[in-house]
């Protein structure tokens, strides 16, 4: 029996499944936040979600629009200052997984969220690093989830905002107290993992119905495929139901806010 689902749902469910129950996860806004909360509402009820606004162990009923939505604070175990969040909880070694999105990524998982073009004369200025540069090095490991396209998966990122394994794959070698770095990248087409030796991204699993050619077509370099390429398991009925309810609830909530007393 096969269910109807979109490529975006496939990506979110696959990203959610990567998060094990009981894990402490530092969550980026957007796709990572959607996946992390889906995990919490399905197979991982004891996952601990932390957002950089200082909200520790938060259980939002709807997805936040911004990193500091009141919903995150109201449903958190406690809320700490931003210096405490970054110094004690992240740098102090209490985060298992950092869950990030990006604008550009290269074969060594370096992330660019700063700009397209040259730093002094940018073609497009992006928001910048935010929490990502230190999440990527101080968390135990890093998951990345992003839509697959040639604009995003580039031969060389225009700027390394956040290190994966550096321009040559060796940036973490010999650095003390540094996390393992990216361990998987989940897109709407496939799942990739870094080669244990070279750190170059390798496609390990194709989503159902996706071909290797499609992945290559959406990637800006000659992407490697694992010898034993797997098919990603399809989303389950319950996962899809919970995800759709979460998104509908979120849309209703934010629409409601827009008609609130401050309009």
């Amino acid at each position: 029996m096969s269910l109807d689902y979109t490529a975006a749902e496939m990506m979110t469910v696959t990203a959610a499944r990567a998060l094990e129950n009981g894990t402490t996860c530092f969550v980026g806004i957007g796709l990572p936040s959607e996946a992390a909360n889906l995990a919490r509402l399905t197979h991982a009820p004891d996952v601990v979600l932390i957002y950089e606004s200082g909200t520790l162990q938060t259980k939002p009923n709807v997805l936040p629009l911004s990193i500091g939505d009141g919903e995150l604070c109201e449903t958190a175990l406690t809320t700490v200052s931003v210096p405490e969040m970054f110094r004690y909880w992240l740098q102090g070694g209490h985060v298992d997984v950092g869950f990030l999105g990006t604008a550009q990524i290269d074969r060594y998982c370096n992330l660019n969220t700063t700009l397209i073009g040259d730093y002094r004369e940018p073609k497009v200025r992006l928001p910048g690093g935010g929490g990502a540069p230190e999440i990527a090095t101080n968390a135990g490991e890093v998951f990345i989830t992003v839509k697959h396209s040639k604009r995003t998966f580039v031969e060389a990122v225009d700027f390394v905002t956040t290190v994966g394994f550096g321009r040559d794959g060796t940036a973490r070698d010999g650095v003390p107290h540094i996390g393992r770095g990216p361990t998987r990248v989940i897109t709407d087409l496939c799942v990739m993992k870094p080669d244990p030796e070279t750190k170059e991204l390798v496609v390990v699993s194709l989503h159902p119905g996706v071909t290797a050619e499609q992945v290559q077509e959406a990637t800006g370099w000659e992407i490697r495929f694992a010898e034993r390429l797997e098919t990603t398991p399809e989303p389950g009925e319950q996962e899809l139901e919970v995800l759709r309810e979460l998104k509908a609830r979120t849309a209703r909530h934010h629409a409601g806010n827009e008609m609130g007393e401050n309009a």
Partner: peptide, 8 residues
């Protein structure tokens, strides 16, 4: 801080 490792 333990920061900016590998960043531009």
């Amino acid at each position: 801080l333990r920061g900016y490792v590998g960043s531009d």
